[in-house]
Design a protein around this nucleic acid. Structure first.
Lengths: 130, 130
DNA sequence: TCCCTATACTCTCCAAAAGAAAGTAGGCAC
DNA sequence: GTGCCTACTTTCTTTTGGAGAGTATAGGGA
């Protein structure tokens, strides 16, 4: 006999599971540490060059910056403009979509700033409990 | 002679760089794929047991679920309640802090749902350009 | 002439993180 | 005894990430 498959009452509105999967994937893609930090820099400083970003985003490697920017470009979050000069000059800026994502993340930045202390205290308490 | 250290005008309000570093760290910690998905499940379904979560969060391994829950507990986002019975029973639920983070992320879920199509189209266009 | 600089990558190598799968504890039903 | 149940660990393999060197090209200086 197959597993009887418990019926659990779900108080939430029925959502197409395929949409949910896609949303989860997109969240996983976009809620990435480096994507967030790059997004924030471009929000704050507008159009930036590659080296400028690598200086501004603390701790990012060139490899990850390139990779992150490519993915963001593919997802339609940034535009990449190449100026055919020597030495090379490439500029990145947010699209409307990228900007709207930045706004969506605004609440998280505010939360982080507001709750730094609480998290720090929670960690100390946890670590003290062993 | 040391590098002359270009002076760039920064239009943003001066923020203590130490605070910024801490916020960045916290964002990196909290804006993690699995943390987000677990947070969302606990928001939607309230208190959950370990196995329930591992069933609900698509694709998570037991190792990552344990690890994610531990970190969330350390950060004060969830409470872990052990019922000393056999077989073991452990329940997880969000704290106020966890709940507030869930609300902060709400905008991102809404954004993802609203912009799935745009991202999909952007990707197709990008891939078509080669 | 040769060398150096600047920029935006790209490549290679190694360490760290994540995933898959099997193992563990310890009562309980059979 | 055998096997089951849950919430983990442990081990092993694969993937990912970071450090650092290499690349192309034009202009400037010795």
């Amino acid at each position: 006999m197959p597993t009887p498959e418990k019926i659990i009452y779900d108080p939430n509105p029925p959502v197409d599971p395929r949409v949910e999967t896609l949303v989860n994937e997109l969240i996983g893609r976009v809620a990435d540490k480096w994507t967030l930090l790059v997004l924030e820099e471009l929000e704050d400083h507008g159009t930036c060059r590659f080296t400028e970003l690598s200086r501004r985003v603390p701790g990012i490697s060139q490899k990850m910056l390139t990779q992150t920017l490519r993915q963001m470009e593919r997802d339609g979050l940034v535009v990449r403009t190449v100026h055919p000069v020597v030495p090379p000059k490439v500029e990145y800026c947010l699209t409307d979509l990228g900007h709207s994502l930045g706004e969506a993340f605004c609440g998280v930045w505010v939360w982080a700033e507001a709750n730094l202390e609480r998290v720090a205290r929670a960690r100390m308490a946890f670590d003290a409990r062993g």
